[in-house]
Design a binder for these strands. Structure first.
Lengths: 228, 228
DNA sequence: AGTCACCGTCTTGTATACACAATATCAGAG
DNA sequence: CTCTGATATTGTGTATACAAGACGGTGACT
């Protein structure tokens, strides 16, 4: 008697491997410039080279690694300018989500959005940046979904994921949490009000600020390095 | 099946295979719903299953096929609504390109853009839709590049590619070529003038129209089917 | 007669083996 | 001592072999 809801956890190893390797890349275990040796990865994860290769190809398609023919896979050195470009695109994608969300959001989704927003508020009051960071992801996801454009949701989510490590760097920035929450408030207001232009502008600004903060951070680090 | 006389592959077979299979998908050789048997593809292209699998994984990451664990790869049935969603995102990406291009385009790029535009004009005057279609691609690519955001260029190009088959359908639409060219003219003017808001709006409208045309076409086809 | 279970076949997923290209190493010449 | 060229080694790219799950058919039981 097989229960219809039985989940045999039947996923390809290569898929799991991809996630594991991705995790190690974004967490800095494999820093930029690292050469990813297939055999070495295979040994590390206790599998053969085949699923490792498939995972690497997947990551390559996602843009997380670079595969040069006959030269193997490497974690690319993503220049600060490159990341800024990505934030620039992210800002526009989020702006679009906001614009559509303001026009299309349902009552249920409004509730879900405000709930996520209040959760962020709690994290802010508790002064728990890590929690805020996670709830922030939920908040933005709610907006994506309210756009009622599933393709857009996928694109935005993918890029959001890819920018995660760089956004994470900003946790420590002074007052970032409070400022972020205030921006969120304005965004929620605009969406609830149905003001698509305002929602769009607010979200664009919100994300653009993150890109600028990242640029600031990079500049600071460079100065720090140069200074000694 | 190694043919020793073939030119030494400077690129992976799987990469070439990916392009070949992609070509067959977008040209309708493998229509939506087709089950892509690995062994069959391997026989077709005269290689083993390994590079075929790698190509399929790549295509899956690009969103062109769906791979369900243990059930193989299939060409997904992309619903009309899904395509419309993609056009909606494309419109926004192009709008962004235009907005940035209006602010950042160099003198050289202006020349290249206008050259591409004039080439389109020639194709319009010659009433050669196929040629116009190809030159149109170049025209848009020029705008992407003028945005001076390489990540945006990649994203826009990828989505443009993915929408190609649906845009191709519109070649036959009455007066589409002339209308398209007029829209291009307005876009070029706005960019050259440096009016980023206008360029953005014009491009958004230009692409949105394509999405609507596609929707029209689908509706017409449906009625046609229903009618007889 | 309909339904369910069991079994065979087929396809995918993974491992291993082999071929070849690219890089590293070392020796010899300038 | 350095530069260059040949050789060795390493690692990728492809093929083949093996294992395991999914689908279809057939048979038995209700």
């Amino acid at each position: 008697m097989n229960s219809p809801t039985e989940i045999p956890a039947v996923t390809r190893q290569s898929e799991r491997l991809g996630e594991l390797i991705e995790e190690r890349i974004v967490t800095g275990v494999y820093p930029p410039g690292t050469r990813l040796d297939e055999q070495e990865l295979a040994n590390t994860f206790g599998v053969s080279r085949t699923p490792v290769r498939e995972a690497l190809i997947q990551l390559s398609s996602a843009g997380l690694i670079e595969i040069r023919p006959r030269r193997g896979a490497t974690v690319p050195e993503v220049g600060a300018d490159r990341v800024c470009e990505m934030f620039e695109v992210m800002a526009e994608l989020e702006a679009m989500c906001g614009r559509l969300a303001a026009r299309r959001i349902t009552a249920d989704e409004q509730l879900a959005l405000q709930e996520a927003h209040r959760a962020c508020e709690a994290a802010r009051d508790a002064n728990t940046p890590d929690v805020y960071y996670q709830l922030n992801e939920v908040f933005h996801q709610r907006i994506y979904e309210a756009s009622h454009n599933s393709f857009l949701v996928e694109q935005a989510t993918a890029l959001h994921r890819r920018l995660r490590p760089y956004r994470r760097l900003q946790l420590r920035v002074r007052n970032r949490m409070a400022t972020s929450f205030n921006e969120h408030q304005a965004i929620v207001d605009a969406i609830v009000k149905g003001d698509s232009d305002l929602a769009s502008a607010q979200l664009r600004a919100h994300v653009t600020v993150q890109g600028e903060r990242f640029a600031d951070l990079v500049a600071t680090l460079r100065d720090f390095k140069a200074g000694g």
